[in-house]
């Protein structure tokens, strides 16, 4: 089965380690060396302005911050998925991240619903996290 991969962004100047981490199967967040705020893709700390941010592994756990169910396919990679859930995850560490949601049996997509990230690799295109809903006890 040869399916066109979903669009995967090019890293920008502030996200090279993030995408390198995904390629290695790891989800990373930036931690401020001064105030400890976790963030994503900032040149310096978005909270306190400190210049030294360190990329560290994230737990991969989070909750759904908001979601939608998309009913139109704008890209061949999504044609067979419509309608599909996608939205914003609040990572356990704090930052918000876009993702598509896979709904596990016995769970639903709702704001506050726990999710876990699975980093999915698309050959020749790159990797990015897709989030699966989990029960509270699995979170």
């Amino acid at each position: 089965m040869s399916v066109e991969p979903p669009p995967i962004p090019e890293p920008d100047i502030n996200s090279v380690p993030f995408f390198e981490g995904l390629a290695e199967g790891r989800l990373l967040v930036q931690i401020c060396g001064r105030c400890g705020t976790a963030q994503l893709g900032h040149p310096d700390c978005d909270a306190c302005g400190h210049a030294a941010l360190e990329w560290q592994p994230a737990s991969g756990r989070g909750t759904i911050y908001s979601f939608t169910r998309m009913h139109l396919s704008y890209h061949p990679a999504f044609a067979d998925l419509v309608p599909y859930f996608a939205g914003i995850v609040a990572l356990e560490e704090g930052p918000l991240l876009y993702g598509r949601f896979v709904v596990a049996e016995g769970t639903k997509v709702a704001i506050g619903q726990p999710v876990v990230a699975e980093i999915v690799h698309f050959e020749g295109a790159g990797a990015f996290p897709i989030f699966t809903t989990v029960t509270e006890s699995q979170a």
Binding site: P7, P9, G41, Y84, Y98, G99, F128
Partner: peptide
Amino acid sequence: SGIEGLRYSAGL
């Protein structure tokens, strides 16, 4: 590009 571009990977 960048992390913001993951919205399209998510299908948004």
